[in-house]
């Protein structure tokens, strides 16, 4: 029987790989045309600040914007496979790959990764605890608190933190990922400075993520608690912890895999609003700035990367389910 399953699984994985590639191709095509059918023109932005039209024409020439759209598309695909995403319009002459990956990618991944991780851990622990003490003070309390943080507008929360902790109390910095204008003594000094600057956005993002994760987890655990195998585990006289973490949590975690997969692109795209409020130079901020500047190559690069991550993480989640949930078979 397991032989049969292995064959089915291999077939399933192969199908999913093909699907993933097809979807990815669809996305890169869409990614190209979506910018061309949008109103607005990058050249328009380039001349907004006293830029003579001849220069605009020259820029158009340089970026191949005078070519027919079909030619542009072919160039785009060919260059894509050569690992060339073009040059940024607004970071003059800088390759898009560099604009995205030089440091912004890392800033976002570190910030978002940490906050999603903290949010997940706290949400899972609190979700399990709240579910196991249903309707007790800790359940009602944490549900209320997380619902409030969940529904708070992120920019408002960010500004409040900036105002009270940054301006009034002066315990967190007002902008940036590092203290401006200082030379860091050594790597530890740099890390400490970086973490200090991360406090504000980290708190905001963690609070904004935690609510959703928590509610899903709590619900999931409650659902698992009604299952017969939990009663069976209790009848077997297992320790409460063994029941909670060995039996309930494993099953309750299954929906969380989807949640994490869905949040993976978020991990990359960053939280534009939070990054803007705290001047955190990540991909969210880059997206925002590139959008304002009609910087197509950069936007295209970000979207392409995002779509790739989204498609891949869904693929990985599906494969992961095969191993996490033995009931799934293909």
């Amino acid at each position: 029987m397991s032989e049969k399953k292995a064959v089915g699984t291999r077939q399933y994985i192969a199908t999913r790989i093909v699907q993933t590639i097809v979807v990815w191709f669809g996305i890169i095509t869409l990614n190209f045309f979506i910018f061309r059918i949008m109103p607005g023109d990058p050249r328009g932005t380039l001349i907004a600040e006293h830029m003579p039209p001849e220069v605009v024409q020259a820029i158009a020439l340089r970026f191949g914007l005078d070519q027919p759209i079909a030619i542009q598309f072919v160039l785009y695909i060919v260059n894509l496979f050569r690992g060339d995403l073009g040059e940024s319009f607004s970071h003059y002459g800088q390759p898009v790959i560099e604009t995205i990956f030089a440091f912004r990618f890392w800033n976002t991944v570190i910030l978002m990764g940490t906050s999603i991780l903290i949010a997940l851990i706290v949400a899972i622990i609190m979700g399990v605890i709240a579910a196991s003490r249903r309707d007790k003070v800790i359940d009602v309390g944490s549900t209320t608190v997380f619902l409030v943080t969940y529904s708070m507008p992120v920019f408002w929360l960010g500004l409040m933190i900036l105002y009270y902790f940054g301006f009034i109390l002066r315990v967190i910095p007002l902008a940036g990922t590092i203290t401006r204008g200082i030379v860091h003594v050594n790597i530890f000094h740099y890390i400490a400075d970086y973490l200090w600057h991360m406090t504000g956005p980290l708190v905001v993002l963690t609070l904004s993520f935690i609510g959703g994760f928590y509610l899903i987890m709590r619900d999931s655990v409650l659902d698992v608690f009604t299952q017969d195998y939990i009663l069976a585990a209790r009848a077997k006289g297992l320790k409460e912890r063994a029941i909670l973490y060995g039996h309930a949590m494993r099953n309750a975690m299954l929906p969380m895999v989807s949640v994490i997969a869905v949040n993976m692109p978020f991990l990359i795209s960053g939280a534009t609003i939070t990054e803007t409020v705290f001047s955190w130079s990540g991909l969210g901020l880059l997206t925002y700035n590139s959008d304002v500047a009609n910087d197509w190559p950069v936007l295209q690069g970000i979207f392409l990367f995002l779509a790739t991550v989204a498609v891949l993480s869904n693929f990985v989640a599906d494969i992961l389910y095969l191993y996490l949930d033995p009931r799934i078979r293909y």
Binding site: D228, H247, R250, N251, L254, D325
Partner: peptide
């Protein structure tokens, strides 16, 4: 209900 008395993922 023997069907459900075992944890399905273990």
């Amino acid at each position: 209900y023997a069907m459900n008395a075992f944890n399905p993922v273990l």
